[in-house]
Simulated scan of single mutants.
Amino acid sequence: MFKTIKKYYAAWLYKRAVRKAKKLAELFGMKYYVIHLGGSLKVVPKQTIKELIKRKRFRKGVTVEDIERHALFVTT
């Protein structure tokens, strides 16, 4: 039963993050990603991803395209 509750909670968090990403993308006209970062789901704009790569937050050689490919959700 505990596993079922964890699944529903994870699904709820994912749906909430997707809604937030869509809302922000529509509001600001930027591309947003839902990614698993730091142990939780984060809604991050593409511009911030570029900054994080420049600051070496990700491993050497990681590009924006790699992150976009592994993102859980990408707005258009």
Rank of each mutant, 00 (worst) to 15 (best):
F2S: 14
F2V: 13
K3Y: 06
K3W: 11
T4N: 05
I5L: 13
I5A: 14
Y8K: 08
Y8Q: 07
Y9S: 01
Y9P: 00
Y9G: 08
A10N: 07
A11L: 11
A11V: 01
L13T: 07
L13Q: 10
Y14I: 00
K15Q: 07
R16E: 13
A17E: 09
A17G: 09
A17W: 03
V18C: 01
V18M: 01
R19K: 15
R19P: 00
K20L: 06
A21S: 09
K22M: 04
K23L: 04
L24V: 02
A25L: 06
L27F: 09
L27T: 10
L27G: 02
L27A: 11
F28T: 14
G29F: 13
K31D: 10
K31E: 14
K31S: 13
Y32D: 04
I35A: 09
H36C: 03
L37K: 11
G38K: 04
L41Q: 02
L41E: 01
L41A: 00
V43E: 05
V44D: 10
V44Q: 07
V44L: 11
P45M: 02
K46T: 12
K46H: 10
K46P: 01
Q47W: 09
Q47V: 11
T48D: 08
I49E: 04
I49K: 02
I49Y: 08
K50W: 08
K50V: 15
K50C: 13
E51G: 04
E51W: 05
L52G: 00
I53D: 06
R57D: 13
R57Q: 10
F58Y: 14
R59C: 11
G61S: 12
G61P: 09
G61T: 08
V62C: 14
T63M: 04
T63E: 05
V64G: 12
E65Q: 06
E65S: 15
E65G: 08
D66N: 15
I67M: 06
I67T: 08
I67A: 07
E68N: 08
R69K: 15
R69H: 15
A71C: 09
A71T: 04
L72N: 00
F73D: 00
V74D: 05
V74H: 04
T75H: 06
